[in-house]
């Protein structure tokens, strides 16, 4: 297992990131039909994605359906194998980084304690055949972190922390509402005191009123336990409420990355503007007509230049010729559109 330091991936020494993703790619092969299934192309679900997750930060990841948000976070956590790229992670908080991309399955196991995931669907992410107590205790059992009384105590603690009663331990998940089940999933993710938690649409499946409770819970836990989140979401209102910075993804790439207020007040990339414009606005007087959204990008068949060019009102020939990279476009503001905001 190689250990890296901040200079190996040019991270900011002043504010060393917890997680530094560099040129992450995840391609799914497209195979021909028939007996011999040749690889005839790739779905570039994630293509050269780079970003930093800072300590105690909530980084939002937004974008339309199918743009590769889930694939990005699942690949970082190695639920999927990397096609290429790196994800440097500092599990101990002492500036010694490991690269998720190159670890073997065995080397990954201890890191699971520090990096966890909360799933979107509170119904399919809990094993229906295990009790709540069993589900929440499982991480501790797997890693041998606690036994007997200590185990029970830890499980009780975390259940109380996420707002569930310890008596629920003997019940099965299907006895709970969506919001309660999501709390169980949160308890399972946090019981090992991780540093880094991915929440992949953790509230999208919940009722609006329950969403608010769960989001506030996540925010409280972040402060209490010193967590950093990557928060994948559809709902821009939620993102604005909880995130410190937001990354906008389009067709497998990050097209804009900026602090939340900056992004919402001064969006640079035409796609971000489209996204913000087409988000439902609660105030009826301020309703703007969403611009023609065009068809959703096909990750298996992208144009050569800027992937957004077919839908972009500002597209030029230069856009179609060469793919623009993510570049600084203001303080702490990155954008992948050279045409806008200079």
């Amino acid at each position: 297992m190689n250990i890296y330091n901040i200079n190996d991936f040019n991270g900011s020494a002043a504010n060393p990131p917890l997680l530094a993703v560099r040129d992450l790619c995840k391609y799914f092969p497209i195979r021909s039909q028939g007996l011999i299934r040749r690889r005839i192309g790739d779905v570039k679900a994630v293509d050269h994605v780079s970003f930093d997750l800072r300590r105690n930060e909530t980084l939002g990841l937004v974008g339309e359906s199918g743009c590769g948000k889930s694939t990005t976070v699942r690949t970082i956590l190695r639920a999927l194998d990397f096609t290429s790229g790196h994800a440097y992670f500092d599990p101990e908080g002492d500036g010694r980084y490991i690269d998720f991309g190159e670890l073997t399955a065995r080397e990954l196991v201890p890191l699971r304690r520090a990096a966890q995931m909360i799933f979107q669907d509170p119904f399919s992410s809990l094993n229906p055949r295990m009790t709540v107590g069993g589900i929440v205790a499982e991480p501790l059992v797997i890693h041998g972190l606690a036994r007997g009384k200590a185990l029970e105590k830890r499980v009780d603690e975390i259940l109380v922390k996420v707002g569930l009663r310890p008596e629920y331990k003997t019940r099965y998940p299907h006895a709970f509402s969506g919001g309660q089940r999501q709390r169980i999933g949160i308890a399972r993710a946090l019981v090992m005191n991780p540093k880094f938690v991915v929440a992949d649409e953790a509230v999208s499946a919940l009722d609006v009123s329950v969403q608010a409770q769960v989001i506030n819970l996540l925010d409280d836990l972040k402060r209490e336990m010193g967590l950093s989140y990557i928060f994948v979401a559809h709902d821009l209102g939620v993102v604005r409420h909880i995130c410190d910075r937001v990354a906008v993804m389009y067709a497998g790439r990050i097209v804009e990355l900026a602090p939340t207020e900056e992004l919402f007040e001064r969006p640079l990339h035409p796609y971000t503007r489209l996204l913000l414009g087409s988000a439902p606005i609660p105030d009826p007087d301020r309703r703007t007509l969403p611009p023609n959204p065009g068809e959703v990008a096909d990750a298996g068949n992208l144009p050569a230049g800027c992937a957004f060019a077919p839908r972009c009102p500002h597209a030029t020939a230069a856009c179609r010729a060469e793919r623009p990279e993510l570049r600084p476009a203001g303080t702490d503001h990155l954008s992948a559109c050279p045409r806008m905001g200079e």
Partner: peptide, 12 residues
């Protein structure tokens, strides 16, 4: 299934 992926991500 999500719960199998979850178990894998827990280190099972």
């Amino acid at each position: 299934e999500d719960y199998a992926v979850a178990a894998r991500l827990l280190g099972a």
